[in-house]
Each structure stands twice: as C-alpha cells, then as structure tokens.
C-alpha cells in the first residue's frame, strides 16, 4: 500500500504540491488526473525518491521513502516499475538490452534466462521478436510498449504510469489501456496512473483522484466521478473552459 500525507513541494516560485493526501490500496489502480502542470508527474517522482518534498511523508508498505538513504531507497525502488511519459528508453542499447538491464544489474540470472524473460515480457506487450532493434527505429506506441515491458521485467509489486496514452492515436491508446488492465489482473500489481485522458482514466482506474492547486480535491470510483456534482471534477471530465478551474 502507498500512503501519502501532507506532501508539499515548491519549484521556483510555484507551490506545485500543497498538501497532497492520497491512499493507494494494495492491488488497486488509482488514476491521478488533473490539468497539465498541476504536479502529477512531480508526485510520481516523489514516490520514486527522484525528488525530495519540502514537507510530508510517502509510505510504501510502511516504509517512509522521504529522506531515505540510497541503499534502502534502492531496495524500495526495486519493487517498482515506472513507465515514463516518453518511455525513456536508452538510445545506446537495443530493445533486449533495455528490458534486460535491471535483470543484469540486480539478479543472478544467466544470459539465457534473461533472454527468455525479455522474450516473455515482449510477448506480454505484443511486441515479439524485436529484441535486436534500436529504440530510434520504433514508433511512439512501440516505444511505450517496450517501456512497459522494461518496467515489468522484475515483476514489480507497484507500477507507476506517467501519461501512458499521451501522444498516441486512439487505437494505440486502447492497446495501452488494455495492457495496463491485463497487467493488474496477471501480476496483481498496485498502480498509480497519471493522466488527463478521461477515456484512459475510466478504463484502467479502480479509483480516480483529481489534483488541483497542489491538492487532491476529489477521490472516488469512475462511476462516482461520472455522477458527481463537484464543480471541479465536472468541468475537468466534461473538458469545459468555463467553471471554477481558471484557464
């Protein structure tokens, strides 16, 4: 379980996170939605210890990752998979090397076992047989799926997705949404999905949380979000420029 309490972060003059409280129960997928620039990606980076908050706590299985030293923090990180917005594949490596990097670094698996695992994960994301390709020759959707295969190489207990469908066509977005859903069912992973794509949010989320002005202003199931009278949520899910959220 991930429990975030009172998380605050100021970047320059802007208070990006201003007391975020969020619970992500074991085995559930929580979608964090909100306008661009509301600190959704910053929130994910705090959970991974890539950024340190000014205030607040982030507990992962009862371990507070805030201020954790590199060794123990890395042990927490090994339980996570992170799909970056642009996939963040290593250009200098092949697809196979990208997916196998954590296995080579953190396990004692033999090369043949690693090759087997890489092939299996590529099959899971529907990209069989592209181990020797370089990331530069892949399309946006393919990069996302390879990024996903890399993120799940170590069988993570937690998955963080940063804008998994941004920049993809609707069909590829649906492919990614189904993959996220199937991973949850296949390996029972606990996930946080950051997105402003409402189709994706409804499809993959067990719960939705809306971030506005550095705080979580709504949490509920997709059905509760659809029927809520909360003006912030209504304006966001209807994609209206008129309402309490000032443009």
């Amino acid at each position: 379980m991930i429990r975030i309490r009172g998380l605050k972060k100021k970047l320059g003059a802007k208070q990006v996170l201003n007391g975020v409280d969020l619970d992500v129960p074991q085995g559930r997928t929580v979608v964090v939605m909100g306008r661009s620039g509301t600190g959704k990606s910053v929130l994910l980076k705090h959970i991974m210890g890539l950024m340190q908050p000014d205030e607040g706590s982030i507990e992962v299985d009862d371990t507070d990752v805030v201020g954790l030293k590199e060794g123990p923090l890395n042990e927490v990180r090994k339980r996570f998979g992170f799909l970056f917005q642009g996939a963040a594949l290593f250009d200098s490596m092949t697809v196979g090397e990208n997916i196998g990097i954590t296995l080579r670094e953190h396990t004692r698996m033999t090369e043949s076992q690693i090759r087997e695992r890489v092939a299996e994960r590529l099959e899971w994301v529907g990209m069989t047989g592209i181990e020797d390709m370089k990331p530069a020759s892949l399309s946006g959707g393919m990069r996302k799926r390879v990024g996903l295969a890399r993120a799940i190489a170590m069988d993570p207990a937690y998955m963080l997705y940063d804008e998994p469908t941004t920049g993809l066509d609707p069909i590829m977005s649906d492919v990614i949404n189904r993959l996220i859903r199937s991973l949850q069912q296949r390996i029972g992973v606990t996930s946080i999905v950051v997105t402003h794509d409402m189709n994706s949010a409804y499809h993959v989320g067990d719960e939705l949380a809306m971030l506005h002005d550095g705080r979580v202003v709504f949490t509920g199931t997709p059905d509760e979000a659809r029927s809520t009278s909360d003006a912030f949520v209504r304006q966001f899910i209807e994609g209206s420029s008129e309402g309490p959220i000032r443009v």
Binding site: E70, R77, F80, T102
Partner: peptide, 21 residues
C-alpha cells in the same frame, strides 16, 4: 551531449528509478 540528452529525455531518471546509480 550524450548525458545531456539522457537527462532531458528522463533516461537518467529511468536509471535511478531502476535502482541503478
């Protein structure tokens, strides 16, 4: 240029998130 590109495309963050210093 190589490390700078890795930084701005989040590849350095990706390494850290995979517990690789």
């Amino acid at each position: 240029a190589e490390l700078g590109t890795m930084r701005v495309t989040e590849q350095v963050d990706a390494l850290e998130s995979m517990a690789i210093n």
